[in-house]
Amino acid sequence: MKIWTVANQKGGVGKTTTVVSLAGALVKQGKRVLVIDTDPHASLGYYLGIDSEEIPASLYNLFVEHQSLTESKIQAHIVPTSVDHLDLLPAAMALATIDRQLGHEDGMGLVLRNIIDNVSSSYDYAIIDCPPVLGVLMVNALAACEQVLIPVQTEFLALKGLDRMIKTLKLMDRTQQQQHRFIVIPTMFDKRTKASPLALRELQQSYSDHLWNGLIPIDTKFRDASLAHTPVSHCAPNSRGSVAYRRLLQFLDSERGVS
């Protein structure tokens, strides 16, 4: 199983959209995909048409019961979505209390890794959506994956948030004696603006080693897709945005992306 985490300590950069769009492209290839929402705002579930406050259990319950997790218990918390072969481990508002409740316990950053381990035979891919704050949940998401995808909105001051995110990863690697692979993904690129090409050039100058050489264009189809609660690959398969995520997937699954 491949495990990817989509993270950026900045909100509104396209994290959730990236999770859903990659998942959509993967299931179209016949892969079994689990998406995991670690953001208390539960916008991933909302995108997929699942109201987190209406479902009886969520990732929160698994964290609370982290000492007694079994495969069947975890499976019971995973919900199917309206998209074939795409399942969701949903978030809930209560996740916002995890730092306060469990943040002082040793090993609390490894709960999600343990959860995914338990269901790894059921899926080909797990893609994790992150909250925009550095806390127990983001640490869990980062500790569970080998590859981190960092969407960066190509706009004025985009690099500020990116620097912070990469610093977080480096500090974590120092602690864990692990090396995260990370890929920077330029998003919401709008060539008609001044800011987008400028931000892209800045990314190329500062992060060329980690920069995906494609880009995700700004595309209103993403909004349509989220309103329809489906991945863009399913409601507008030939849109520019959908094609761009398909290319990104090709890259991630290629030699360089996996490396």
Partner: peptide, 16 residues
């Protein structure tokens, strides 16, 4: 604050 962050990570990522 780096030290504080690393300390936070160390605790959370303490392997069994």
């Amino acid at each position: 604050s780096d030290i504080a962050v690393v300390d936070f990570f160390s605790r959370l990522l303490k392997e069994p």
